[in-house]
Amino acid sequence: MAGKLLSIGECMVELMQAEGDLLRKGYAGDTFNTAYYARTFLPADWSVDYLTAVGTDTVSGEMLAFIEKTGVGTTQIRRVEGRSPGLYMIHLKEGERSFSYWRSVSAAKTLADDADHLRAAIEGSDIIVFSGITLAILAPSAAETLLSELRRAKAAGKSVVFDPNIRPRLWDDKQYMLDTISAGARSASLVMPSFDDEAAHFGDADVAATIARYRGLGVYNIVVKDGPKGVTLSFGDAPLQFVPSANVDKIVDTTSAGDSFNGAFLARYAVDGDPVKAAGFAASAAATVIQHHGALVSRDKLPSA
Results as ranks from 00 to 15, higher is better:
A188R: 13
A208I: 06
H201A: 03
E62A: 13
A155K: 13
D49P: 04
K174S: 13
D206H: 15
M12A: 09
R103E: 00
K277R: 15
E144W: 09
L5Q: 01
G61Q: 15
L217Y: 07
S125I: 14
G216I: 13
F202A: 15
G227L: 12
F281S: 07
I127H: 01
I211E: 05
S260G: 14
V54G: 04
L42C: 13
A282C: 04
G157Y: 00
A44G: 13
N247V: 06
Y101T: 01
V219A: 10
H117P: 01
I181F: 05
S182L: 03
D197E: 15
G184M: 08
A2P: 05
S189V: 02
K4Q: 06
V13H: 10
K154Q: 12
I251A: 05
R152V: 07
S194M: 01
M16K: 11
L64N: 01
P164R: 10
N33H: 08
T40E: 06
D274S: 09
G203F: 01
D172G: 15
D57S: 07
T110V: 02
L190R: 00
G9K: 11
D113M: 12
D30H: 05
S187N: 02
I222L: 04
L138A: 06
D114K: 03
D21C: 14
M1F: 09
W171T: 04
Y101P: 01
T58D: 14
A209W: 08
L178C: 15
A264H: 01
A107T: 07
F130K: 04
T210L: 02
A112L: 14
Y220A: 09
A279L: 12
G20E: 05
Y220C: 04
A121H: 02
A287K: 08
E94W: 04
H293D: 00
D259R: 05
A238V: 00
E81W: 13
I90T: 12
Q17E: 12
S106F: 12
G26T: 06
E81K: 15
D249L: 11
R299M: 12
